[in-house]
Write a protein that binds this DNA or RNA. Structure first.
Length: 109
DNA sequence: CCTTTGACTACGC
DNA sequence: CGCGTAGCCAAAG
């Protein structure tokens, strides 16, 4: 393993630590990584995460709790189903009670 | 090396 | 309240 991959590596690391039934935002992860303004980079890392099985990308949503990345899963409601499976209420790609299920790595990790 | 992109976020109209 | 634009940053082509 190479620590040089730290950016993506950190993203994967944090993403794997997301507790069951919780979600976080790209910006929150980015902030934890020290790149708060690079929320997109987190998304890019997630894109590579497709190669990895350990990254629960479905637990990572945008700041509004919107399942923006569901199009990258399989094009259907798979992401929503996964979240609902964890006890998260999702309606129209929008996570309900976001504040209850939101997991902030900067505070809880 | 320079240009494009991309699963974001904030602000403005 | 929905859409557009701008700012942001790093990787891929």
């Amino acid at each position: 393993m190479k620590e040089s991959d730290n950016f993506f590596e950190k993203v994967y690391k944090v993403a794997r630590k997301i507790p069951f039934g919780r979600v976080t935002s790209y910006g929150a992860i980015g902030a934890y990584l020290g790149a708060a303004k690079s929320a997109r980079m987190v998304g890019w890392a997630m894109n590579k995460a497709h190669n990895l099985d350990d990254v629960p990308a479905h637990r990572v949503v945008n700041k509004k709790g919107l399942l923006t990345g569901k199009h990258h899963f399989d094009g259907t409601n798979l992401m929503q189903q996964l979240l609902e499976n964890e006890g998260i209420v999702v309606i129209e790609n929008q996570i309900q009670d976001l504040e209850k299920v939101f997991w902030n790595p900067s505070e809880e990790l």
